[in-house]
């Protein structure tokens, strides 16, 4: 895929880290404000997609990226499942999806037990998944136009 002009490239290079940072902000404040894992993950993936679109890329490197992202996605889901499953192993309760950490005070960044951790895992998962979808479609399109 070909890149775009120097103006677009430069602006994207400046904007992408900010967008990425905003995605992280949305994820870690997921238990306090609207947003959370899914919304933040999509924003983070948006930063990646912008970079790929503006700078262009070689197909083979995209393929490599895709397999790495697939690994991250599966690992994140496994992490989520493990966090949910720990509740089953805790003696006495054995409840799936139980919030086994200290809840803290409402409104603080570090509070709400496992929910922020789950948000981070979901954010990583969604970011990887949306990027994978984008890259897969790019690869497919390239295969067709050949």
């Amino acid at each position: 895929m070909k890149g775009m002009t120097i103006i677009v490239k430069k602006i994207t290079q400046i904007m992408a880290p900010i967008i990425f940072l905003f995605g992280i902000y949305i994820i870690v404040h997921g238990h306090l404000t609207p947003g959370g894992g899914f919304a933040g993950g999509v924003i983070m993936a948006g930063a990646f997609i912008l970079l790929i679109l503006s700078d262009g890329s070689i197909l083979s490197s995209l393929r490599k990226e895709e397999s790495g992202l697939e690994f991250l996605e599966s690992a994140a889901i496994m992490g989520f499942l493990i966090i949910a499953g720990i509740g089953l192993l805790i003696s006495g309760t054995s409840v799936f999806f139980i919030n086994f950490l200290e809840k803290g005070t409402v409104g603080k960044l570090i509070s709400a037990g496992v929910i922020p951790i789950e948000n981070i895992v979901v954010g990583a998962e969604v970011c990887a998944a949306v990027s994978t979808i984008f890259i897969a479609l790019v690869v497919f399109k390239d295969e067709v136009s050949k």
């Binding site: 397999s67 697939e70 690994f71 996605e73 599966s74 690992a75 889901i77 496994m78 499942l81 499953g85 089953l88 054995s94 409840v95 799936f96």
Partner: peptide, 24 residues
Amino acid sequence: NSLIPLFVIVPLGSAFLMAILGRF
């Protein structure tokens, strides 16, 4: 009762375990 979630955990967990370990 605590065995009930296993019906979802086992297939879901094995699916993503395969995605991670299956390539090695």
